[in-house]
């Protein structure tokens, strides 16, 4: 009986799983694409660094904090006009990816900034003393030295996105979390609830495990 219920669930679960992967993948790509340069900018414009710029630093820092302080559910709804502008619709996983990306960008940017901060200042100074250009320092020193930290950051961001994507159901985003809430929570269907939770647990474990492996691989320290 339980087995039958599970087999019945497979198509639904499969669809939800793909939706989750889809939303997380899109938002992660955008978070990295925009969050990485943003994180670098937050770092290199800081006081005493080679592109010190108080105005840029303050404006970006404020914007990042602003977005990060808004609860995700509110962001999700509040960004509906923007979502319509970008994707032409406000429902479905593509639409949900907009607010997921907006939330993930500053989150990831701060992680990048923090891992850059852990680089010994002397190493950056040695590069300046050698006559390196700012771009060389960013590419060959900052990104190279912070690689393990950034990989960790990507892992954490991915896992957070899996969590946040559950709320995407509110705008009809779908995904596993949405399935768990719709069937498991509202309809007291324990089979669905437990199955989805097990799938989520596995997903998060796999992401964490792979992330750690990759981080170790790129760590030469």
């Amino acid at each position: 009986m339980l087995l039958n219920a599970l087999i019945d669930l497979i198509p639904e679960l499969n669809k939800a799983f793909l939706e989750t992967i889809y939303m997380v993948a899109i938002s992660l790509c955008i978070a990295i694409l925009i969050g990485l340069p943003l994180g670098i900018l937050l770092f290199v414009t800081d006081r005493g660094l080679f592109l010190e710029n108080n105005i840029v630093k303050s404006v970006l820092g404020f914007a990042v904090n602003l977005i990060r302080s808004i609860p995700f559910v509110i962001l999700l709804v509040g960004l509906l006009p923007l979502t319509r502008l970008i994707t032409g619709t406000t429902i479905g996983p593509t639409a949900a990816s907009v607010s997921l990306s907006v939330a993930a960008i500053p989150f990831f940017a701060r992680i990048v900034e923090t891992s850059l901060r852990e680089i010994e200042k002397g190493v950056i100074e040695a590069a300046i003393a050698v006559g390196a250009t700012p771009w060389m320092i960013i590419k060959d020193v900052l990104l190279s030295e912070a690689r393990p930290g950034i990989v960790h950051g990507i892992t954490i961001t991915t896992i957070s996105l899996v969590g946040y994507s559950a709320m995407a159901g509110i705008v009809g985003g779908g995904g596993i979390g949405d399935l768990a809430i719709r069937f498991g929570y509202y309809r007291y269907d324990n089979t669905v609830m437990i199955t989805t939770i097990v799938v989520l647990i596995c997903l998060v474990q796999i992401i964490q495990f792979s992330g750690e492996r990759i981080a170790r691989l790129v760590d030469k320290r």
Partner: peptide, 26 residues
């Protein structure tokens, strides 16, 4: 103007070759 430091300050994620090549790339 070359400079060396008490704590060396090499780029730990780069090989000896790459560390030296960095200066030449500059």
């Amino acid at each position: 103007i070359g400079m060396i430091f008490q704590h060396f300050y090499l780029v730990s994620s780069k090989t000896v070759f790459e560390n030296i090549a960095f200066a030449l790339k500059a």
